[in-house]
Design a protein around this nucleic acid. Structure first.
Lengths: 204, 204
DNA sequence: GTATAGATTAACCGTTTGGTTAACAATTGC
DNA sequence: GCAATTGTTAACCAAACGGTTAATCTATAC
C-alpha cells in the first residue's frame, strides 16, 4: 500500500530537475520525460505545474539570469576605487560562477541559438547596466590613475578573462590533462592572477 | 574514370547548407528537412549522401575544426619572438574568427552538450598543442624578457580575449546598442588593443 | 463521514522527426 | 544502343515527442 504524502515541494523538485537537464542539454536537447524522470514524477505533472515546455524553460531561464545578473550588477556598481574594484569584481565574480558553473555555457548557447527569444525574456528582466563602471574607468583615465584605455574594451577584457574558463572547461581539462580538482585549483589561481594581469597592464 | 560532376555539386551543396543550419541551431535544434530545403533537394538525398544525421553532423564538425585548428596551431608555432608573436597571433586569430564567426559558439555548444562525442571526434583530428608556445613563454620569463607569469594563464588570457567577443556577440551588441557595422569596427579596434593590453601587462 | 478541491497516474493522441522504400530519371561504360 | 550504375523523387513508416484526458487518490473543511 503506497501512501502518497502530498508533496508541496513538487513544484520545487520539478524546477531543480529542469535546471539540471536544461543547463546540460539546452532547450532543444532536453526531453520532458527526462525531466520528469529526474524529478521522480509522471510526465503529466510537468504540464500540471507548468503549462508547457516553453513555460518550464522560461522559469529555468528566469532563475539562471535572475540569480546571477543582479549580483554582477551589484559588484559593478560597488562604491570603490577602480583598481580595488577590479580585484574585488574578479574574485567575487569567479566565485559566483564557480557556484553556478553551467550557467555561462547555458546562457551563451540559448542566446546564440535564438536571440529573439533570449532578449525578449532578458530585456524584461534586469538589464546589465555597465554604464556606471564605464564612467568610472573614464574618470580614472581622466584623473591619471590608469593609462588611457577604451573603457568598453577594458570592461570586456575583464569579463572575458573571468567567464571564458567556464565556457571552455572541457577543452582546458582535455588539453592540459586536468581532473576536476586540478581545474578547481586552476580557477583559484586564476582568481588571483586576473586582477594582477589587468592592473599591471593599465596602471601608470 | 567515372565522371561525378552532379554528385560533387550536390554533396557540396548539402554540406554548405548543413553547416549553415548546424552552426546556427546545433545538432539538436537542426532539422534534416530544413537542411534539405536550404539545399533545394529532397530529404532522401541527405541520406543518400550521408548515412544519417550523425554522419552529416560529423562531416560539418570535421570542417569546422579541420579548417580553423590547423591555422591556430600554425600561428602558435610560428618562429618569432614572444612579444611579436602575441601581436601576430591576436591579429591573425581574430581575422580567422571573423571569417568564421559562428564556429566558436558552435564548438562551445557541442563540446558542453556532449563532451564524450566531442572529444571522440576532436581527439582523432589535430589536437591543439600549445606546448611549444607554453615553452616559449617559460623561456621568455627565464631570459627576463617578460615578468614571471604562469604560462598557462597567459596563454588562456590571450585566447579568452580573442574568442569571447564572438561568443557574446548578441549580448555585446544589445547592451552597447551596436549594429553589425559597429561590431565589425569594434572587432578591428580590439584586434589592435588586445596585444597592447597583454604586452603592457607582462613587459618588463 | 462526506463533499470538495487539489495532486497524481496511466493511457492515450496528434504531430514531428529521422529514416526507408520502391519506382523513376539520368549518366556512363561498352 | 543498351544494360548497368548513379542520382533523384514522392510516398511511406515507426519511433519519439510534447501534450491531453479521464479516472483515481489524498488531504482537509464542514
Amino acid at each position: 500500500m503506497k501512501k502518497k504524502t502530498i508533496d508541496i515541494n513538487t513544484h520545487e523538485r520539478i524546477l531543480t530537475s529542469a535546471k539540471k537537464i536544461f543547463y546540460l542539454k539546452g532547450l532543444d536537447g532536453a526531453r520532458m520525460q527526462e525531466i520528469a524522470d529526474e524529478a521522480n514524477i509522471n510526465k503529466a505533472m510537468l504540464h500540471y505545474y507548468f503549462r508547457n515546455k516553453e513555460a518550464l524553460f522560461d522559469a529555468v531561464f528566469a532563475e539562471a539570469t535572475g540569480n546571477i545578473l543582479p549580483q554582477v550588477s551589484e559588484l559593478l556598481n560597488a562604491e570603490m576605487p577602480l583598481l580595488e574594484k577590479i580585484s574585488y569584481f574578479t574574485d567575487k565574480y569567479i566565485t559566483i560562477l564557480s557556484e553556478n558553473p553551467l550557467i555561462p555555457a547555458f546562457i551563451i548557447k540559448e542566446m546564440n541559438n535564438n536571440p529573439e527569444r533570449f532578449f525578449k525574456i532578458f530585456n524584461e528582466k534586469i538589464r546589465l547596466k555597465p554604464a556606471v563602471f564605464i564612467k568610472q574607468i573614464k574618470s580614472a583615465v581622466r584623473n591619471g590613475i590608469i593609462k588611457p584605455v577604451d573603457p568598453l574594451q577594458l570592461f570586456l577584457n575583464m569579463i572575458s578573462l573571468c567567464i571564458f574558463p567556464f565556457l571552455a572547461r572541457p577543452m582546458i581539462m582535455n588539453v592540459f590533462g586536468m581532473n576536476d580538482d586540478d581545474f578547481r585549483k586552476f580557477l583559484n589561481k586564476r582568481k588571483k592572477e586576473i586582477p594582477v594581469f589587468i592592473i599591471n597592464s593599465i596602471k601608470i
